[in-house]
Amino acid sequence: MSSEPRQFASPLARRLAAAAGIDLTKLTGSGPHGRIVKADVEKAKTATPPPHPAPIAASPTLPAPAAPAASAGYTDLPLTPMRRTIARRLTEAKATIPHFYLTVDIEMDAVLALREQLNARLAPDKLSVNDFILRAVALGLRAVPEANAAWAETAIRRFTDIDIAVAVATPEGLITPIVRQADRKGLGEISAEVKSLATRARDGALKPEEYQGGGFTISNLGMYGVRDFAAIINPPQACILAVGSADPRPIVKAGALAVATVMSVTLSVDHRTVDGATAARFLATTKSMLEDPLRMML
């Protein structure tokens, strides 16, 4: 048995919505007890779509997945409202946003050395590599504000604040809590905030204002050993940075082969909002911050 809440809609409304490609779960029913009726679908057909899709919403009361069917060769897991939202937004993003991708390799030895020194002083608290990346991105966006932007259909929206979303995996799906005004926060503050947000995200305890909005997203799969990947843009934001693992790799330095700890990052960019050269400038700034991390301390 599915514990998913039943969507009440008249048979005619269901059929008309299916024909028009309207998602019934997005409608508010005006019939008895909120039942969706023909008039609601007709209204949705004529309504103009909102300029910004709603942000990914976390539901604190997510239903448990259905028990696997004993006899069938597969199990259908009913969609949670969150899963539905993720599916819709990502499909829309991948299908409608003209993505392009820029990858750079960043030498992380200096960051790792600095992190070791700082953590020795901070113990038992610890800074993660990701905290440094977040700080570097924030400063990169301050230097190249064109990348801290969103596609607003009739305009390019450039954000005043540097609010960075961090993708957090939860059992129910991905959620992106936001570190507000990240460029004004030191590494310790960023670290504490990300830890708190991630914990509460996994517990489903985030408030809407903690995951709604943001001008840029960082998605880090480095801890799983993923070397390099390209992320799907989190609309209406223009950029998402996919961070891979930092591993010792052979590099060529002054004409000689050497070994360095290298991390590949790939920036996915909405070409409507940000051009290639601008995105490259942002990446170069961020890279230089991470390769010379004392600059981040300024």
């Binding site: 008249s10 048979p11 005619l12 409304a13 059929r15 023909k38």
Partner: peptide, 8 residues
């Protein structure tokens, strides 16, 4: 009133 279709 219940907006039944022919299928129903």
């Amino acid at each position: 009133t219940l907006e039944a279709t022919e299928a129903d």
